[in-house]
Simulated scan of single mutants.
Amino acid sequence: MNALELPTPLVTTDWLAERLGDDRLVVVDASVLSVSTAAGSRWLSGLDDYLIGGHVPGAVFADHLEEFSDPEGRFGFTRPTLARIARAARELGIDDDVSVVVYDSSLGHWAARLWWLLSAAGFPRIAVLDGGLSRWQAEGRPIDTGFQLPREAGTLTLARIDGFWADLDEVQRIVDGESDAALVCALSASEFRGETGTRSRRGHIPGSVNIPLGSIVDRETRTQLDGQALAERVAPATAGGAPRIVVYCGGGIAAAGTALALRRAGHPDVAVYDGSLDEWAADPELPLITVA
């Protein structure tokens, strides 16, 4: 069976609608919800919304909170092992013969996180649906409810690719001037400045520039900026000429959205700092900058 080729890491709703039902395609809903409680906001699986509110016809559901995270990780959404990624992906019907289109019901960052996980694991054919579920519904396209049984997966060959991830040691070397790379914070401007945030220590890692996830998304259509508009928005990341860009946020989710945008803008050496500020801010010896 010939593989279904994806035109870019971002596909349109038109492209997907024309190919729904193709045996070579697996569509994945990767939504996660933020809910407010008396104890503060927390993450909630998007499964109920997928089942009851509806999903793209034929889409299966990917669980970021459990299956595509390391349950033993110190922080939420710690990236899982290669073996765990392979098992979770095969349970969705993903194997060497299919291409994958992933979406979410937010700004695309949950979809981008799954794109990043699978791409870093060597899976070659995955794209994010531009505009996600919101655009799909706004265009009046069909929605299914209930559970979608995944296809039976065959062999899935994964092998970790270097360069996709940065760790605490690398970020420390960048801050200390021992590594030539740019640091990008994908959080909102107010969190970057240290005015808001839920961690006990606020602010940003020294030397960072701010490219919020929301700034690379058209808020009305939920589609990603492209062309010159995208190039101008991500320009601060390359202003210093560093060959490598490391993107972080709170827990490595929004960072995946901004990191994917940087790759789409033509920057090949982009990494996500998986621990992000959840890890950095937890160490009182590591510096954080606030802007009055």
Rank of each mutant, 00 (worst) to 15 (best):
P7C: 13
T198A: 14
V32R: 11
L25S: 12
T196E: 15
L149F: 12
R90N: 09
T37E: 14
R151T: 14
L33A: 12
W136R: 03
G266A: 10
G122F: 10
Q224N: 09
S31N: 08
E67K: 15
W165A: 14
G163E: 05
S105Y: 02
I205K: 05
I174S: 01
L92F: 11
F147A: 15
L262G: 09
E220M: 04
R79W: 09
R219D: 14
G266V: 13
L10C: 08
L114P: 03
R24Q: 10
T13Y: 00
N210W: 11
G140Q: 06
G122H: 09
A166C: 09
A3N: 07
G251E: 10
A127L: 07
R87D: 15
P7S: 12
P236E: 09
V217T: 13
D169N: 06
W165M: 12
F123H: 11
D176H: 12
S36P: 00
V35R: 13
P236K: 11
S200Q: 15
L6R: 08
T13P: 02
F68K: 07
L33C: 02
V291R: 11
E67M: 08
L4I: 06
L133G: 05
I85P: 07
G122D: 04
T155Q: 14
V128N: 11
R141T: 02
D70F: 04
H267Y: 12
G252D: 01
L16M: 03
F192H: 15
I161Q: 15
I211D: 09
L213V: 00
G203H: 06
L44S: 13
G240E: 14
W116K: 02
L260T: 06
L187P: 04
A231R: 14
A138E: 13
A181R: 04
H55P: 10
L82G: 04
L183K: 10
H55E: 08
S45N: 10
D63F: 00
T78Y: 03
Q228L: 13
F123K: 06
